[in-house]
């Protein structure tokens, strides 16, 4: 808005501190301004809200409704109302619990290992050495590989005919680790850990940079060795970063899909049939939307719990810092 007419001649500084809308304007003009500002505000948030409404909240709410109806075996037949029965059936099924535990195992196999490896690389690369930037770039390089790229790379490495890993494991021509029920989930996990290593490294490096050098130096002067300095100074100060990595890592791992689809398609014997893959199978292969919707709600609840855990800890941390 333009400068207010009739403002007394004051120093520019004083003028600057006064709100531009100025008390001098007539009241109806001020109301008009407020209304216009509010309208502009709504107009600016509207595009986002439309997208959220159509592609987040509507399908989210629809899941609860879909779960109440049994999907007919053939399209075109009427939906049969089943109420909460279907929830009980799906959430009580062996299939759901298998997927749940497979996903939990997948999270436990990938998240801690990924963080420990990322942290180890970050600590090693966190020193003043000539050319260390090259190593940092290499360690973060897998951040540029998508799930699909990483999966195809490991798919070829684990291929029974051409895969170097199968060759070195002495399994050439036999069963690929991806087709062996006892090893499939591990193979998928190794792929995932490798793909996420770059991200873990970047996160941990950023966390390490926030650890003041003076503290470490003081500990060194006090005679603390490398390991002691790491345990007593670095690790506690990394707490928030570690927590963030654990929570976000777990949420992302619970949503894993691409590597399963490309490496194992849920098999062998459902040993890698993680939750999102089960949703995908229910909707697109079995044509059972009701079941897919209930599984999706379960996934949402898990994500919600993990997010709330993170918010709780983050809140505590912020009050702690300030």
């Amino acid at each position: 808005m333009t400068a207010v007419p009739g403002t007394p001649a004051v120093a520019p500084d004083a003028l600057r501190r006064a709100p531009a809308s100025a008390a001098g304007a007539p009241p109806h003009r001020r109301v008009q301004r407020k209304v216009r500002e509010a309208l502009l505000g709504y107009a600016l948030v509207l595009p986002s809200l439309v997208v959220f409404g159509v592609f987040v909240f509507y399908p989210f709410a629809k899941n609860f409704w879909l779960g109440l109806y049994r999907t007919p075996p053939f399209p075109g037949l009427p939906r049969e109302y089943a109420g909460l029965d279907q929830y009980r059936d799906v959430l009580g099924s062996d299939e759901f619990w298998n997927s749940f535990w497979v996903t939990v195992r997948f999270v436990l196999l990938t998240v801690p290992a990924g963080i420990v490896l990322g942290l180890a690389l970050a600590v090693l690369a966190h020193q003043r050495l000539r050319g260390i930037a090259i190593y940092r770039t290499i360690f973060s390089s897998t951040v540029a590989t998508s799930v699909a790229v990483a999966s195809v790379i490991f798919f070829t490495l684990l291929n029974p005919q051409i895969g170097l890993f199968t060759y070195w494991l002495g399994r050439e021509g036999g069963l690929s680790p991806l087709d062996d029920p006892d090893t499939a989930l591990y193979a998928v996990s190794v792929t995932t850990i490798w793909q996420n290593l770059g991200l873990a490294f970047i996160l941990m490096s950023a966390g390490l940079q926030a650890v003041p050098d003076e503290l470490l130096e003081a500990a060194r002067v006090d005679g603390a060795g490398v390991w002691r300095r790491f345990r007593r100074v670095t690790l506690p100060l990394l707490g928030p970063t570690l927590l963030f990595a654990i929570v976000v890592g777990s949420i992302l791992a619970f949503q894993a899909f691409g590597q399963i689809d490309l490496l194992t398609e849920g098999g062998p014997e459902d040993r890698t049939n993680v939750l999102v893959y089960a949703i995908y199978t229910a909707v697109f292969k079995e044509g059972n939307e009701g079941k897919g919707a209930i599984l999706a709600i379960a996934l949402f609840v898990i994500t919600l719990v993990l997010t709330l855990v993170q918010l709780r800890f983050l809140e505590r941390r912020v009050t702690y810092e300030r």
Partner: peptide, 21 residues
């Protein structure tokens, strides 16, 4: 808060209905 709440709904929860949309 509505904006922030969208971050709590993973896309994997809503994708099949979005396909119909």
């Amino acid at each position: 808060v509505v904006f922030l709440a969208t971050m709590m709904v993973p896309f994997e929860v809503v994708f099949f209905t979005n396909l119909q949309t």
